[in-house]
Design a protein around this nucleic acid. Structure first.
Length: 515
RNA sequence: GGCGCCGUAGCCAAGUGGCUAAGGCAGCGGAUUGCAAAUCCGCCACGCGUGGGUUCGACUCCCACCGGCGCCUCCA
């Protein structure tokens, strides 16, 4: 297995700190506003990565932090006239709900900054004691000049940093120094500390919490590409100066999501647009609006389903920029439906529910010995291809292509062996098919796909629609028998025009709702 | 200005120093169907932004240029 690390800028062999175990830390959101689609990229990708590593036999611990204290949270709380904790709680709940919809359920711990204040303070104290940080007017800064390695992740030097400026700048020894602890202004949430009341700086929480949950050196640290500098650079500086050893084996950064026009979704250009609009300035008409994904992820999920979004993200390589568009997500949905149709076909043939198939728990358990069986030979080949792609820096996009090939192999086999009529089918091909489908189940599960049947919930209205459609199908079937194709076509086309597609099969007519 | 990334068919998108450059969407032809839908079969980049260079050989490495994007202040 090979993994690309931002630090070395190359793919490196994957060797963990502790054999058989993997610790992953992913930078989570600052919960000052509801989640936008860009927030979902990392969690979805790392969810798939964890599933894969687990399948390969690793014991994986995946941590995603929640930043619940920060200037933006304070501002938002003041703007709304509520407590910072309330802002944090609401947006954390929104974030978690979105993760659930996207099938992200592999996270082992979600530490919050405000619940690790003691840990953070002692981390800061250590850095001061070791001479890497200094207190100044109630703030504590990391002394960038003391770290000879500073800049190695983002490839820049300490002395050319502009720093954040503002009033804190006058307290710094050099502009590139960054805050470990920020003194509280009147009315701001604060915690007591040896340097006076205040709150943690942005980067220190990740150093403190990752150490607590994963150790001084852990395997994978992830986040969006925009976090490389300053966040991860600073995080690494703090941790490595404090511990005198490497913080992370592999730095994995996912590409950012971009709106079709230009600019990162939810990023600076988005905010600049918003600022301009609020200031009454003219904006280009290709602007990124909240409705295009910069906000309201929950709405987007409702429109498109979490599964579609998940597949949309996983179709590409995690390091590439994804251009966000509803059309693109829609197209991903069209492709996904090919799988859904196969599941329906297979259920008609065997009575078995793809979604309820037993899980293949490990890579070794999923090994296939075709023993000359032509179908299983092909299935094994696709499975090998899939795993090889995933072994190469988690190439989910490449792996997906093998999934489509596998699907075609299975459909063709059903065609050729007439497996749609189970009564007519002999047991032998059916057994091979089932083994092939088991492989499809195994490989799609690794991407976190197909854990829940799509479609609307069963309500009385739904049942009523079903009965009406069945009635129309009955009438159409009678017309067809009488060669009254005009009437038959009116029924079929009429239903099609309202999104109900009929499918004439050998054993009768079926129907499905096209979304 | 500094540090980077990207540019593969109509669209989305993997990938490799040298076999026929994955897969998806759309499209076209065929099998099937009363017609459709679904499924299957076939077609769909003599070329991988442009121009040079290295090499026996590059789309893949190097340089330049053009175009798009990110970071350098908070951002997944």
């Amino acid at each position: 297995m090979r993994v690309y690390s931002t630090l070395s800028k190359t793919k490196e062999p994957f060797v963990t700190v502790v054999p058989g175990q993997v610790g992953i830390y992913l930078c989570g959101p600052t919960v000052y506003k509801e989640a936008h689609i860009g927030h979902m990229v990392g969690p979805v990708i790392f969810d798939a990565i964890k599933r894969y590593l687990t399948h390969c036999g690793y014991k994986v611990k995946w941590v995603v932090n929640i930043t619940d204290v920060d200037d933006k949270l304070i501002n938002e709380a003041n703007r709304r006239g509520v407590a910072m904790s309330q802002v944090a709680e609401e947006n954390t709940a929104d974030y978690l709900a979105n993760l659930r919809s996207l099938g992200v359920d592999q996270i082992d711990a979600m530490p919050k900054a405000t619940e690790h204040i003691e840990e953070i303070k002692s981390f800061v104290s250590d850095l001061i004691d070791k001479g890497f940080a200094y207190a100044s007017g109630g703030d504590v800064f990391f002394d960038v000049a003391k770290d000879s390695q500073y800049g190695k992740l983002s490839n820049r030097s300490a002395d050319e940093q502009q720093g954040e400026g503002g009033e804190a700048a006058s307290k710094k020894r050099s502009p590139g120094d960054f805050a470990l602890w920020k003194s509280a202004k009147p009315g701001e949430p604060s915690w007591d500390s040896p340097w006076g009341p205040g709150r943690p700086g942005w980067h220190i929480e990740c150093s403190a919490m990752s150490r607590r949950l994963l150790g001084e050196t852990f395997d994978i640290h992830g986040g969006g590409l925009d976090l490389v500098f300053p966040h991860h650079e600073n995080e690494m500086a703090q941790s490595e100066c404090c511990h005198g050893k490497p913080m992370v084996r592999y730095w994995l950064h996912n590409g950012l999501m971009r709106a079709a026009s230009a600019g990162k979704v939810g990023g600076r250009s988005d905010r600049e647009q918003t600022d301009k609009e609020q200031a009454g300035e003219a904006t280009v008409d290709t602007k990124i609006s909240r409705s295009k994904g910069a906000g309201g992820l929950a709405d987007l999920i409702r429109r498109q389903t979490g599964e579609r979004l998940r597949f949309f993200l996983l179709r590409t390589h995690y390091r590439t920029t994804i251009v966000f568009s509803e059309e693109g997500i829609q197209e991903a949905g069209v492709a996904l439906d090919t799988f859904h149709r196969f599941f329906a076909r297979w259920k008609r043939a065997t009575g078995k529910d793809f979604y309820q198939l037993p899980r293949i728990a490990s890579r070794s358990e999923g090994e296939i010995d075709p023993q000359g069986d032509p179908l299983l030979t092909e299935v094994a080949e696709r499975r090998r291809g899939y795993l090889a792609k995933m072994d190469d820096d988690f190439n989910t996009g490449g792996a997906v292509s093998e999934l489509f090939e596998l699907l075609r192999v299975l459909n063709r086999y059903m065609d050729q062996h007439g497996l749609d009529q189970p009564a007519a089918a002999s047991a032998e091909p059916l057994r091979s098919l089932e083994r092939g489908v088991a492989a499809l189940r195994e490989l799609t599960a690794l991407l976190g796909l197909f854990f829940q049947a799509p479609g609307l919930p069963d309500t009385e209205d739904q049942a009523l629609v079903g009965k009406l459609v069945e009635l129309l199908i009955e009438l159409r079937t009678e017309s067809r028998k009488k060669k009254d194709f005009a009437t038959a076509d009116r029924v079929r086309q009429g239903l099609a025009s309202i999104g109900i597609q009929l499918e004439d099969r050998k054993d009768g007519t079926g129907w499905r709702i096209e979304r």
